[in-house]
Nucleic acid binder design. Sequence first.
RNA 1: CGCGGGGUGGAGCAGCGGCAGCUCGCGUGGCUCAUAACCACGAGGUCGCAGGUUCGAGUCCUGCCCCCGCAACCA
Length: 485
Amino acid sequence: MNYFVTTSIPYVNGDPHLGHAMEFVMADVLARYARLQKKPVLFSTGTDEHGGKIAEKAAELGISPKEMADQMSAKFRDLSELLNVSPDRFIRTTDKGHEQRSQLIWKSLNEYIYKNSYVGWYCVGDEEFFTETEVKENKGVCPDHNRPYDRIEEENYFFKLSAFTDQVFHAIDSGSFQIVPKTKRNEIISLLKSGLEDISISRPKDKIEWGIPVPGDSSQVMYVWFEALMNYITVLGYPEHEDFKKFWPANVQVIGKGIIRFHAAIWPGMLLALGLPLPKMLYVHGYVTVNDQKMSKSLGNSVSPVDVIEKYGADTFRYYFLRHVPSYGDGDFSWEKLEQVHNSELANELGNAVQRTLAMIVKYQNGMIGDIPEPEHDTGMYHQAMERCQFDRALEDVWDQVRGLNQYIDQQKPWAIAKSGDAEHLQEVLAYQAGALMQIAGLIEPFMPSTALKMTNIFGTGIIRPIEGTLFPKLDQPQITSADA
RNA sequence: CGCGGGGUGGAGCAGCGGCAGCUCGCGUGGCUCAUAACCACGAGGUCGCAGGUUCGAGUCCUGCCCCCGCAACCA
């Protein structure tokens, strides 16, 4: 009954991009959908703020890591507000509560943690370790500094992830821990078949200082990933808080495809070591390109979600990314496509269906709708799609209804009925239209909350309450000045 | 032989053994309630290549070509 949904927590070493925004919205849709079904919902998101990269970046800017994290975290929080995303919790890994609880978790994992020396190839010039393969490729000499790699030993704590290979495999194989889409599940299954290796979960403090200290060993800090994953339960107040008992295991954890291993192998391993149940579902979305190119700083092609929202509004943003980025794959963004979708599907199809319906009711019936019949459209496909996080399919199903309504109007020709004077029949037809729009409003509510609200405001009371302007004003239309007319 | 995904009308996708389909775009026609919106019809595809299985193959098998991700301890 209780419903817990999470996003991954973005690492704050760069500004929020379209991918972050999309993930926020996806989780938000799930949360709103569950709330509509009257489930007690907890929706958490937040930011991941420790680690060397943050410290480095902060040093570049001449500020402290904490100041840097504060600034960046705020940007993500602001974005979620602009998107009309409705998290119940926004956790930061620099929150005192998270820091304390993750140390507690570390201690609980004690029997699966051991100290070992990590041996690797190190380049003093880069101050970095390199992999065996890389070293081989470069024939043992760092190409950037033209000096041989050094064989270096470093003390690390390790987590006995290998001990959990079978259990994680079984959970995924049996479906008790679901991974969608199936293609991603297969990837993990094949990874598990080759076995999981123990992972290093700490870093020496003299190398990376910006992290949570390992309990009982002030010379080490926790590896940022290991600690960040814990946010999914520290946010619930693990171990003692009521929320944890109420909401764990998570119903859906939403992540991007780049971090599957952490969420489908390491995180489950940690949970099993703590004796906790695994999340019910891991939903893996794809990446967003811009004009079919990977977003990158060097190309300078990244698009700020904020710009998109400012121009088209949060609902159009949400609609575009959930309908036109395949829910089980990668997708593309371009201003042209967005405008096309906004004008055609939102303004012309949905917006205009609302407009023509309300206009006729006002014109022919003084705004009186009368009895609205029960909606008759079968929503089975929609709900099935929602259960599987197939947002694109769900919206397609809704749009079949929108098109169906426009067809219905053309077939019934209410304007002709009005001329014929059959008031009763006219009322039936117009009320049917209003009913269909009310049902559509209900179905799009998780996706486009403010649009849904406007629609129910218009038709919900039995008397039309017209709105200022239109639902989706078209943009970039050639302006025809009144002087031309 | 590291792992995985994909190649279907101009674009984006669905179909995964039984007459090649959807949306957009394009063309023609209709309508006038509506945001120059809406509706109908139409053009457009040797379903990456080559073999094979089958009464029948985008759909199954084999080989090949071409794209694209992931991983090799960065979060």
